[in-house]
Amino acid sequence: MRRYARLFAVQVRASALLAMQYRVDFVIDGMLSAFSAGVALIPLFVVFTHRTSIEGWTFGEALVVTGWFTLLQGVLEGAINPSLTTVVDHIRKGTLDFVLLKPADAQFMVSTARFLPWRAMSIVTALGIFVLAFVRLGRLPSLTGVLLSLAMLVAAIALLYSLWILTVSAAFYVVKIDNLTFLFGSIFDFARWPSSLFRGVVGFVFTFILPLALMTTYPAEALLGRLRLSTFLGSLVAAVGFVTFARLVWKSSIRRYTSASS
């Protein structure tokens, strides 16, 4: 465990060094992430200029969902995406060999290979959105709400990461997964809306198969103090299940890689 903590530190250090090699990128990255967070709010303003609530969500409440969306998008783009796109590169160039030759877990090594620290700006933006939301609502979140929502944040990140690992595992089979990652990005975009907006088949898919609800709506409900205990526990179980499943798929993909490539 301590060994992996040290490895993690070394990997983060390398990412920080890389980020500093390109100072201009640093600044542009920061500006872009603030900009995209701002843009994320526009659809919400458009919808709520004509009505005061949609599907039982007031403007303030919907803002909380957007806050979570912004936060998770920051995590996705800053910590999950960059590492896992490097894996795809490794697979294509055959340099994954070097990762597999190392006496350290390959999934850990590739998952921590690259961070874009400037994307952490999204976290600041998200906090700003939360403040704005609770000002609109005219109250403060309860302590239990905050704690529950933090637990949900961990579950949401675990889930997002697992979905990414599953997408990347596909790269072992199809090699060119640019389209797949693009698809992933556009589906994730739906998470900016409260999940009760989606009905029927789509609603079912977003709740149980690609649990977008778990990523943004449930943490928002937790923060608003209205998440049911059963949903909370169910989410934790789902997160653990997804992490385990992703791990198994990754392992079998690696086996396939090592037994097939030349």
Binding site: V10, Q11, A14, L17, K102
Partner: peptide, 20 residues
């Protein structure tokens, strides 16, 4: 094929391997 991190000096790859 190469394992050196392209945009960083080789010393950084040495350090990474040291930790691994």
């Amino acid at each position: 094929k190469q394992q050196l991190i392209w945009d960083l000096p080789p010393a950084e790859t040495f350090e990474l391997n040291r930790a691994i």
